[in-house]
Design a protein around this nucleic acid. Structure first.
Lengths: 138, 138
DNA sequence: ATTTTATTGCAAATTTGTCGCAATTTGTGT
DNA sequence: ACACAAATTGCGACAAATTTGCAATAAAAT
């Protein structure tokens, strides 16, 4: 079994969830993709997984931390979380709407952790979106 | 007229929008509050502003930058943007769901600006959410 | 292989967000 | 303050998005 699918199986198992055909299909639709809207995911699974089941599986994925919900511009989008992708943040262009990844930045990550600590807060994750004008649009 | 309302009036005017009773009421519902869901805002305006008008005004507020839409946990929420509140970010507790503000951090802000620049990206705004366990829940 | 338990598909119900249009408010010029 | 023009509001009807009940089916456990 391909590596990431195996990781999905283990993660589901650990949380007492079933490793089903439908969930594998939905997972595949998210792999190596930029964040997608629910609508896009449903389309990607068209004919293979029912709409209602996509919603239900996405909810499970979210609860056990397999995916993350992001606010990108105006709509929310979903992508695999850091344990499946590399950790990263997004740049969203206010003009053309495209999103690109921001390379990982150690110094930023440390700063965030320090800030959380200073509030007696244990950081488990975070998300950052920078909005503005991309190179092409400025 | 109270200071913030005056600022609302001016901001609307500058963008050619009317300063109406309904918009004042909606604005008031957002003032000095943590981010709220659309549903909460509609409830807060119940009997005073119609649901459809709340949606319409919120859309205008968003377009001209009076409010910001945030992804907090699972649902999106709205709050007044930095020109009406102080600029800040949020800590969301994964356990109790409460959100609190992170005090402004100059060093963090500079770092973000630098990162955007390094991608030839002109930063116009950004939002950050740190998820984890708050003091009370850990 | 069989039983038990959880998940899926489908249809129906809710919930959320939009739209058209007449009535009202707001903005402007007198 | 008054009258007219332009924009906004409330309301009911729609459309889209998300959730739910339940019988059928697939996955887990024995």
């Amino acid at each position: 079994m391909p590596e990431p699918l195996e990781q999905l199986r283990v993660t589901l198992k650990q949380r007492g969830q079933s490793f089903t055909k439908a969930r594998q299909i939905i997972f595949a639709a998210l792999q190596d993709k930029e964040p997608q809207t629910m609508h896009e995911i449903i389309l990607a699974c068209r004919g293979k997984v029912d709409r209602a089941s996509v919603y239900r599986s996405i909810a499970v994925f979210e609860q056990i931390g397999i995916i993350q919900r992001l606010q990108i511009g105006w709509k929310y989008k979903l992508e695999l979380s850091d344990s499946f992708h590399n950790h990263h943040h997004h740049l969203t262009c206010n003009n053309c709407g495209k999103t690109t990844r921001l390379p990982e930045d150690e110094q930023l990550e440390r700063r965030l952790d320090g800030l959380a600590r200073s509030q007696n807060f244990v950081m488990q994750g975070h998300q950052l979106e920078i909005q503005g004008r991309c190179q092409d649009c400025s």
